[in-house]
Design a protein around this nucleic acid. Structure first.
Length: 376
RNA sequence: GGUGGGGUUCCCGAGUGGUCAAAGGGAUCAGACUGUAAAUCUGACGGCUCAGCCUUCGGAGGUUCAAAUCCUCCCCCCACCA
């Protein structure tokens, strides 16, 4: 059901720069060229854009969220409608997060036990319970191509004791989710998630234990939760090589364009982040020379596109002055045009990274990437 | 012409003797956002040689230790009645 082909590895011994990999993931709903960025569509929709917009931006796979879709519209609706693909009409690959992150970001509504997580809905306060098995079961109903096992995401800073507890629970739940998935005949695909806080030995331990289970892919979770960027890089650099080389490696919830370049260089194959879509709705646009805040007064009379080197629909058609006007007027079109641009930027960046790896010039690409961004 | 109401910092709008450079909105300006409780949130928003000082509440006078707030006159708006 999932086939990962490692097409090329950057040569060299430089740990930070020489481990980029170019790969291909085949799923029932299509192929994902890696390294890949996956736009986040929590509620079965990448906010503000249509599936056609996503396609034209170059999206190969998008995310959905188990917690959110379970609460609304509910599994009965999605089952009745034939699964999330059929419901949303997104016919390409889908990855669903397990809800583990929500029990971290909505922590005051969640209570962790050995059995699972009992929580209150952020929508109406109703009480619910997720076990690792149930998290997989719901994702099977959603019909995602890649399901994530239920994990315990730890914030920063966290003590070693807290991180250990979260790790142990994450591993135990991964095992239960994995067994449940095996019993069901390994439908779709299930990825395990490495936790361990900002402790290398804990990350090692977690990666080692998960690698002992035959997951089709592995993720690193619990990064970019408030730690300094350098710490995140150290954790990723430490953990990525511990995961099976012949399986996709996914860093969850990351990150900035710089983060993607750095982490792809360390051998990460998949990323997801709300940053391009959310920041677009908040007026921040990504460009090859850095980010710009479109409401800024300096763009009032600016007839140039967001980024003259960008090939997106927005940049092909509209000026900064118009986009600034739309944004400041809260016109709905602003959200769509901004989101199209940011997603295109991210997805195009990944395409460039893939191309550079293929051409054996990832390091040069990285150098140019940093040289371009200085002004705005 | 008569009666009543009102003129507050860019706009709307609180404030009716000191705790007022003046609530609250809006506009404006800037920033943040990393597995989406986010079309959200934060900060600035009279001036300056900035822990203090100066100018400001339609205008001009006055009362008072002290006035956006009280008194007098004037100017201008709004409502209703002629």
């Amino acid at each position: 059901m999932l086939e990962f082909t490692l097409l090329k590895k950057s040569g060299g011994d430089d740990a930070l720069n020489g481990r980029a990999r170019r790969g291909r993931i085949k799923t029932r709903h299509g192929v994902i060229e890696t390294p890949a960025f996956m736009p986040v569509g929590t509620l079965g929709s990448v906010k503000a854009v249509s599936k056609e917009d996503l396609f034209h931006c170059g999206a190969q796979i998008i995310l959905g969220n188990t917690y959110h879709l379970y609460l609304r519209p509910g599994c009965d609706v999605i089952r009745h409608m034939g699964g999330l693909h059929e419901f949303s009409k997104w016919s390409f690959p889908l990855l669903t997060d397990s809800g583990g992150f929500q029990f971290f970001s909505l922590a005051k509504l969640a209570k962790f036990t050995d059995e699972g997580v009992s929580f209150q809905s952020h929508i109406d306060g109703s009480r619910h319970f997720f076990s690792p098995e149930k998290a997989v079961e719901i994702q099977m109903i959603l019909g995602s191509d890649i399901m994530m096992s239920l994990d315990w995401c730890m914030g920063y800073p966290a003590t070693e004791k807290q991180a250990t507890e979260a790790l142990e629970k994450t591993v135990a739940w991964a095992k239960r989710g994995f067994d449940f998935w095996q019993e069901k005949g390994r439908p779709n695909n299930l990825f395990g998630i490495v936790q361990g806080g900002m402790f290398k030995d804990l990350r090692s331990r977690c990666a080692h234990e998960l690698a002992g289970m035959d997951f089709p892919g592995f993720a690193i979770g619990g990064l970019s939760v408030g730690e300094p960027t350098q710490v995140m890089y150290e954790m990723a650099d430490h953990t990525l090589p511990l995961l099976p080389e012949n399986k996709p490696r996914y860093i969850m919830g990351v990150g900035t364009p710089e983060n993607l370049v750095e982490l792809a260089g360390m051998g990460c194959d998949m990323f997801d982040c709300v940053m391009p879509s959310r920041n677009a709705r908040n007026g921040q646009l990504f460009t090859s020379f850095g980010t710009i805040n479109i409401p800024n007064a300096k763009y009032r009379l600016d007839s140039s596109p967001i980024d003259t080197t960008c090939g997106c629909y927005t940049c092909q058609n509209y000026s900064r002055a118009y986009l600034r006007h739309l944004y400041k007027s809260r016109e709905l079109l602003a959200y769509r045009l901004n989101t199209i641009h940011n997603l295109y930027y991210y997805l195009d960046l990944m395409a460039k990274i893939r191309h550079a790896i293929e051409q054996d010039r990832f390091l040069e690409f990285k150098k140019e990437f940093y040289e371009k961004r200085c002004i705005d």
